[in-house]
C-alpha cells in the first residue's frame, strides 16, 4: 500500500503540511478562509516534530502499522483496517475514550478539535480525495506518497 513517508534530511520545519492538512479537512474552498480559525481548533493530522530552530524537523502522521495497536485497543470498533492495509476511523462509532491516543507509539492519533472523537490521517481519502495535501504542497519534496 502507498504510504506517506517523510525524509527528515529534507524537512525544513515550515509546518506548511500542518496547515494544508487542516485545510484539506476543513471543507473550505479557499485556504485564506481559515483566517478566523481559533488556535484551539487547529488540529492537523500531521505534526512536525522538533521545535523552532531545532536541528532536526520531521513531519509525522499515521504509519498505518501492520499490527495496529490502536485498532486492537479500540473499545468501540471505530478503528479498523481496510483490505489494503490503511487504518481508518469511523467517527460515528468513536466514543471519544481516546485509548488509541494513549497507545499510539507515534502520537499520530489525536482528539478532534471539538474533543468528541479521535481523528487520524486517512491519506486524504476521506476529504479532498487524490494526492494527500501535505505531499502535494510540501515545498521541499520532503513528504512523499509511495509504495515501499
Amino acid at each position: 500500500m502507498k504510504r506517506i513517508y517523510v525524509n527528515e534530511s529534507r524537512c525544513i520545519g515550515c509546518r506548511l503540511c500542518e496547515w494544508e492538512c487542516v485545510f484539506a479537512n476543513s471543507g473550505l474552498d479557499a485556504m485564506f478562509k481559515l483566517k478566523d480559525l481559533a488556535a484551539e481548533n487547529f488540529a492537523p493530522r500531521i505534526r512536525v516534530e522538533g521545535g523552532e530552530k531545532a536541528e532536526l524537523n520531521f513531519a509525522v502522521n499515521c504509519r498505518h502499522c501492520e499490527k495496529a495497536i490502536c485498532v486492537q485497543s479500540c473499545i468501540a470498533g471505530a478503528l479498523s483496517k481496510t483490505g489494503e492495509g490503511m487504518v481508518v476511523i469511523d467517527d460515528k462509532k468513536c466514543v471519544g475514550c481516546f485509548t488509541c491516543v494513549l497507545v499510539c507509539p507515534f502520537g499520530a492519533i489525536m482528539p478532534r478539535a471539538d474533543g468528541k472523537a479521535a481523528q487520524k490521517c486517512m491519506l486524504c481519502t476521506d476529504n479532498i480525495k487524490g494526492e494527500p495535501n501535505c505531499v502535494k504542497y510540501c515545498p521541499n519534496g520532503a513528504i512523499v506518497f509511495e509504495e515501499r
Binding site: 520545519g13 515550515c14 509546518r15 506548511l16 496547515w19 485556504m31 485564506f32 481559515l34 483566517k35 480559525l37
Partner: peptide, 10 residues
C-alpha cells in the same frame, strides 16, 4: 488573506 500560519516567520 493572512491566516497567521507563521510559515513566513519560520
Amino acid at each position: 488573506l493572512c491566516i497567521s500560519c507563521r510559515v513566513c516567520e519560520r
